[in-house]
Amino acid sequence: MNMPTSLSAANVPHPCRGMSTRIMQGVFAAAVLFACAAHAAGWKDSREVGDIFRHAGVHGTFVLYDVSAQTFTGHDRKRAETRFIPASTFKIPNTLIGLATGAVKSVDEVLPYGGAPQPFKSWEKDMGLREAIVISNVPIYQELARRIGLERMKDYVSRLDYGNREIGSAVDTFWLAGPLKISAVEQTRFLAKLALGELPFPKDIQGAVREIIRLEQGTNWKFYGKTGLGNVAGVGVGWWVGWVQRDDRVYAFALNMDVRSESDVGKRVELGKASLKALGLP
């Protein structure tokens, strides 16, 4: 937080005008400390989750947002508040924006992958978003982004208050190579709104997106999630984000971690599920 080193009496509105600078600094400092304390009260470190990451030898963070209680529980708060490229977790807002702008009529409208060779054979096929999001098909979602267009994409990313809201000038790579970045804490806030249908989109569109990222469900719970994997300047980051809905309560979660080798890729979901279990979910 940026704090001024002094407060000029000329800048203090009546009736505070005339109070000494030292007094005003004291008032300001007290207010800042109160605000910071209130913010900190919403975060609880979990030793159990920390042990999971340490035992796995992974540098990363996990955060669980209890929407009803408005509290965060997790491991490595500093990293949880640090922004990284969203990678394929952006397929969630990309789907929302694509449906809202009419770039696609439904999650089942077939999009072309373009015909070029892909890293995975499963990507070398025209398909709808329902299928594409499950296998994290990059060329299909790049086609969707191009149909949305740069200006509309900028507008909707800003409306969503998604991360740093910066998409640059390349409409089909900004979530993979930057400049768009988002923190784990911001991911949970965004996902909580989607879970509750509180994003600035029609309810049916939010419902359609929830449907295609639902992973499992039981008698009184539903489980949603999406992975992401990116690399910028040789530094890999892996994501797993989503939420658990149990009865009438929503718990949004986000994990991100350094990915140093191919063997780390599978640890995203493994560590995420272990962390959820340690915190009593699902």
Rank of each mutant, 00 (worst) to 15 (best):
R268N: 02
Q206E: 14
K91M: 13
R152P: 01
K203P: 05
L64G: 00
G234A: 08
F201A: 04
N137C: 15
T82V: 05
A41W: 12
E166K: 08
D248W: 08
N220Y: 10
K105P: 04
L229Y: 05
S88T: 11
G115V: 08
L279T: 07
F28C: 07
G228M: 05
D108C: 09
G50Y: 06
P200F: 07
W175E: 06
G26N: 09
Y113R: 00
G163Q: 02
D247P: 00
G26F: 02
G60F: 03
S68E: 14
V138L: 09
S106A: 04
P179K: 04
R22D: 15
H14C: 07
H14N: 13
Q206N: 12
V107S: 01
E151K: 10
V138I: 14
A233N: 15
S122T: 15
K193I: 12
T61M: 02
D172I: 10
T21Q: 15
A30D: 13
G42R: 13
A87V: 05
H75S: 01
L7E: 03
A100T: 08
K277I: 09
H39C: 08
S261W: 06
A132V: 03
K203V: 11
K277S: 15
V235E: 15
Y65S: 03
G207K: 11
P93I: 07
L99Y: 01
Q118P: 04
I92H: 05
V63N: 03
I205M: 05
D51S: 11
E124W: 01
Y65K: 02
S275Q: 04
N11Q: 13
D172P: 07
T219I: 08
Y162K: 03
V134A: 11
L279G: 07
A274V: 05
K125Y: 10
V32F: 14
R260E: 06
D161E: 14
K277N: 13
A100G: 10
V237Y: 06
A184T: 05
T219Q: 11
K267H: 07
F223M: 00
P202L: 07
A100D: 13
E216D: 11
L191Q: 02
T95A: 14
T227N: 13
H55D: 14
P179R: 01
P86V: 09
